[in-house]
Simulated scan of single mutants.
Amino acid sequence: MPDRHKLVIRLVAVVGLLVAVAFAVDLDAAITSLLDANLSLTILAIILVQGQIVLSAYRWHFTTQRLGRPLPIGRAISEYYLASLLNMVLPGGVGGDAVRATREGKAREGAADKAYGVAASAVILERLAGQVAFFMVAAVGIACWPLLLEDTLPVGTGWLLAAPPLILGALALLAWVGTRLAPRPLANWLKTLGPSIRKAWLTDGAWLIQGALSFAIALLYIAVFALASAAIGAPLGLLAAAALIPLVLLTMLVPISIGGFGLREGAAAALWPLAGFAGSDGLAAALLYGVVSIVGALPGALLLLKRSSAASSRA
């Protein structure tokens, strides 16, 4: 299927989901809450987004060091800002990471295939470390559910918890098959993935740094959403934030929308009443979270402008 058709499908999905949510809740109340959002809390949320991006960039910097291809921290931060912005506005939520890996591969010296292989490994392992930590945080939040709300978890929660081991198992199987059936360059790269995981995550205490960074980043994501909810007048308590927000953020991993829009709003509108707020509050909080995330990543636009200017000057 051509890329433009996929983009149209995702745009239709986002609009359709948002329209469905708008019909399910009090849209006027959601818009009013959004327009009356507390400016101080919104600014604080934007500041915390900077912490997410900088710590994530340092995790990438650390991962590349472990793989023997040091990446200057300044370049890591600027590239991560760009990738974060692109992830919020491109379909699938990983387009920015693909751009990050490609740009870093081009910047490397030596054989092109080796440079791109290391760059791709570093990006994949850095993001995967974050996803593993976030699923662990989500599991803790779900364990808090009976303490906060009710014994019955939302429909689909079991699948969310089962997804990580299932996905990891499927990826391991694909990697094993790929080492035997894939074209030689890809097979060679897959054979290096296991040793790369050990270097980046496990040996010489790397797991301590990877774990500390990844859990800190996961908590920052939750804090930003909690601030967005508080800003629109629906402050969540600690247990409510731990139980609800990870479930909402997990929906953003489903690659059928753009930047998680639509799925995130639908999940928040469904879950916020469980904490004593209206569905319209969940919609407003999720929309504000999306805006805050984009605004927080806007410094990435400076890199895009710089790149465009450099290309124009060479033309």
Rank of each mutant, 00 (worst) to 15 (best):
A24S: 13
P70G: 02
A29D: 05
V25M: 10
V21W: 10
E265A: 11
A24W: 08
Q65R: 13
L153D: 03
G92D: 06
A200G: 02
G74C: 05
A98Y: 07
T63Q: 02
T32V: 13
W159L: 12
S33Q: 14
I31H: 03
G296T: 00
M252C: 10
I222Q: 04
L263I: 08
R307L: 12
W201R: 09
V291C: 05
L247P: 02
I53S: 03
S196R: 08
V177Y: 08
E109Q: 14
T63F: 01
M1P: 06
A226S: 14
V177R: 13
G237D: 02
M1Y: 05
P235Y: 12
A242M: 15
G95H: 10
A122E: 00
L160H: 02
D36N: 09
A182P: 03
A170D: 00
Q131K: 06
V140H: 09
L181K: 14
K106N: 08
I142C: 13
S308V: 15
L161S: 07
P185D: 11
L166F: 06
G110Q: 10
P91G: 12
L249W: 07
S40W: 09
A268C: 08
L181P: 02
A143C: 15
R264C: 10
N87V: 10
G279Y: 13
L86G: 13
T157D: 04
G233P: 08
A170M: 05
V25N: 04
S280A: 15
A76L: 01
L249K: 13
A107H: 05
S280Y: 09
A30Y: 03
G74A: 09
M1R: 07
W272L: 15
A268E: 03
F23H: 13
W272Q: 06
R180I: 03
L208V: 11
I9G: 09
E109P: 07
A29H: 04
A311Q: 14
G169E: 03
L193T: 02
T102W: 15
L305V: 15
S84Q: 15
A223N: 03
D26V: 04
L71H: 02
S121V: 02
A269H: 08
L160F: 05
D151P: 06
V295K: 01
A278P: 05
D97E: 11
A228M: 01
A112T: 12
Q210Y: 04
A83W: 06
L303H: 10
G95W: 04
I9R: 15
G117M: 07
M88K: 12
L173C: 04
A122D: 00
N188Q: 14
Y81T: 01
P165K: 01
V137C: 06
A182C: 08
K306W: 12
L227P: 04
L11S: 15
A138C: 13
A284Y: 00
K306L: 14
L298T: 01
F135K: 09
L86A: 14
T192G: 06
T192N: 06
E126A: 09
S214M: 12
D204H: 11
L271V: 12
